[in-house]
């Protein structure tokens, strides 16, 4: 079904967003590969609806899981009467619980995401689309949030393959707003206060945030969420020499309009590269501290490779 919908929407066999002209967010071959994946969670998370996911909780599915001693008040329907006959003791049969998983994907739409070649924003859209597709195709509850200084737009509680197209269209339609600075802390706080379902939370951002990163990540801490942070940078940000950021320059911050006059020479380049390394390490350290799984990528890494390899390695999908 989903495949048909996708085909209907995408010219050239892919899923093309409303903006058009930039190629499909997900092409057909890639979607086939995504079909074999599901979103995993390392934590026992209570879903609201029964889903396809074999929960770590014991439940009411047909799949036997275990026995336990009967205690008063247990549902007599689950007593194993055959065993009672043989052993004269009451045991309760436990079945695997199958439930849905809440997958929330927050993606950064601050102005800085427009930077880079390949563009960070498109790369982010593709990640969000892939994760959304994986979630929906396995009947998880998928919510997608676009944020900058706050949560700007969202598509929540989508389930099943039916809303795949809607989800992809939503993602495709989002655009960063020029000159709007990101504020990760306030955005995540707003997300957390919206009482989202417990589940997997994936934050896709460049994390070039001048605010308090620790305060931001604190919003994702705790048992409610199995959180992932995917930091997306462009190759030009990792190594300015690639982007010809050399010479006497007046650097303009795309988000807050801040200016920095620099004379970029070998010394400063060396210093900058070290600073990038240090900053990424800092973000990683903060994530680890708050129990958030951190993944770094730059847009020169193939998007499919990221999803099929790196995200699997990190245990986000499997």
């Amino acid at each position: 079904m989903a495949e048909i919908n996708i085909k209907n929407r995408g010219a050239g066999g892919g899923v093309r967003g409303a903006m058009g002209g930039r190629g499909p967010l997900l092409d057909v071959d890639f979607i086939h590969k995504l079909d074999r994946l599901d979103v995993l969670s390392r934590k026992i998370l209570l879903g609201k609806l029964q889903g396809e996911r074999r929960s770590k909780r014991k439940g009411q599915s047909v799949e036997f899981a275990d026995y336990r001693n009967y205690v008063a008040g247990d549902d007599l329907r689950f007593v194993d009467w055959n065993l009672f006959a043989r052993l004269d003791r009451l045991f309760l049969r436990l079945f695997m619980e199958e439930e849905d998983l809440s997958v929330s994907v927050l993606f950064d739409a601050s102005a800085s995401m427009q930077y880079g070649e390949p563009e960070k924003w498109r790369y982010t859209q593709q990640i969000v689309a892939a994760l959304g597709y994986i979630g929906l195709s396995h009947y998880n509850r998928v919510s997608v949030y676009r944020f900058d200084a706050r949560v700007r737009d969202q598509l929540v509680n989508q389930r099943g393959r039916q809303p795949v197209a809607r989800m992809l269209d939503f993602v495709e339609r989002q655009e960063p707003i020029e000159g709007v600075a990101g504020d990760l802390e306030s955005a995540l706080r707003e997300f957390a206060r919206s009482r989202p379902s417990r589940g997997v939370v994936v934050v896709v951002s460049d994390f070039l945030d001048k605010g308090d990163l620790d305060a931001a990540l604190r919003q994702l801490a705790g048992d409610r969420f199995d959180a992932y942070a995917i930091q997306v940078l462009s190759p030009q940000e990792v190594d300015p020499e690639v982007g010809q950021v050399i010479g006497d320059l007046r650097l303009h911050d795309m988000e807050d309009g801040d200016m920095a006059e620099v004379s970029v020479g070998p010394a400063l380049l060396k210093k900058y590269r070290a600073t990038v390394q240090a900053y990424c390490q800092h973000v990683r350290d903060q994530c680890v501290r708050r129990g958030v799984t951190y993944l770094f990528t730059d847009t020169s890494v193939g998007f499919d490779r990221l999803v099929l390899t790196y995200l699997r390695q990190r245990g986000l999908v499997g």
Binding site: L208, L249, R250, E255, A260, Y272, T275
Partner: peptide, 18 residues
């Protein structure tokens, strides 16, 4: 110095570097 204006994603890292 007639500095060339260049848009970058953030001055955060540059400022730290310089």
């Amino acid at each position: 110095l007639r500095r060339k204006r260049m848009d970058i994603s953030s001055t955060l890292l540059w400022k730290k570097a310089i």
